[in-house]
Nucleic acid binder design. Structure first.
Lengths: 147, 147
DNA sequence: TATTGTTATACTCTATAACTATA
DNA sequence: TATAGTTATAGAGTATAACAATA
């Protein structure tokens, strides 16, 4: 009959709750830009260069129909262009527009500001450790963790 | 034109993604017990003693109708009992059953196991720092962060 | 036949509003 | 009138399945 830990001692619980807090706050801050959190992933992935919708779906770990919606919205914002592949005309190659790159920069500023909010009152040395450990724990993008 | 950070350098991003990973995995592990992640919060809160549904809603930061659903499910599992308050007959005081306490113990074992999974390959010293920092960053339960 | 993107549909989670029974 | 709990409904977010165009 060992004394049971209080539930905030669990890293898993803390991550779930903090993740939700960060997501909610991030969504709030992004809404000024007309963006949703999930669309930031698209802007980030396209920074390296054009990509088909299916490649994007795999990389982001979402289903293709979700990509359709995300890209529809980003096209409405003129942040992304669908360019029909001339060789394989089934493919849409997604390109970042200048506006898209600008929005991307803004999202990174928003994220940096949110980091400051979240880390206010945290010892800088501990914050550095946190960054490193979190990155270490993150599974590489695109490897869907299926059941 | 400062070099922009890669997006995994953001603590906010990392927390959002890791939170989602932890939530998905936790849900998976809990399904063996017939539980969903959100119900663990109920079991945890009731450990200290009975509570009305409205108090629970405030503490968990969810809307009262959500509590109704959660408690319905937990009652079906015979983990929780609704006991009509004899003084104010509008109130349902929620009590943990023996089965509920047992399920609670199981969820804490599951969480501990998940912690091991998540922290595999992390230096124990860093893991300790992580625990402390995450707890520090967590807003106290029940104080809804409204817009 | 297989693949890319799309549409239609459904399921989960959560919120709001209207309702009931008590106070 | 106000409050505790409930029900009905709606809105995100994501998934699956069927479909059209192209390979």
């Amino acid at each position: 009959m060992e004394p049971q830990q209080p539930w905030d001692d669990s890293v898993a619980f803390s991550l779930v709750r903090l993740g939700a807090v960060a997501h909610r706050r991030y969504a709030e801050l992004l809404s000024d830009l007309g963006l949703r959190p999930r669309q930031v992933g698209v802007l980030e992935q396209l920074r390296a260069g054009p990509m088909s919708q299916l490649e994007l779906a795999t990389t982001l770990g979402v289903t293709p129909s979700v990509v359709v919606d995300m890209v529809d919205e980003l096209e409405r914002l003129e942040a992304v262009r669908r360019v029909r592949d001339t060789v394989d005309r089934r493919r849409s190659n997604l390109e970042l527009t200048d506006r898209g790159r600008e929005l991307g920069r803004s999202t990174r500023e928003v994220a940096a500001g949110l980091d400051e909010e979240l880390l206010a009152g945290i010892d800088p040395d501990h914050a550095r450790t946190l960054r490193a450990v979190l990155r270490r724990m993150l599974p590489p993008r695109g490897l869907r963790q299926e059941a």
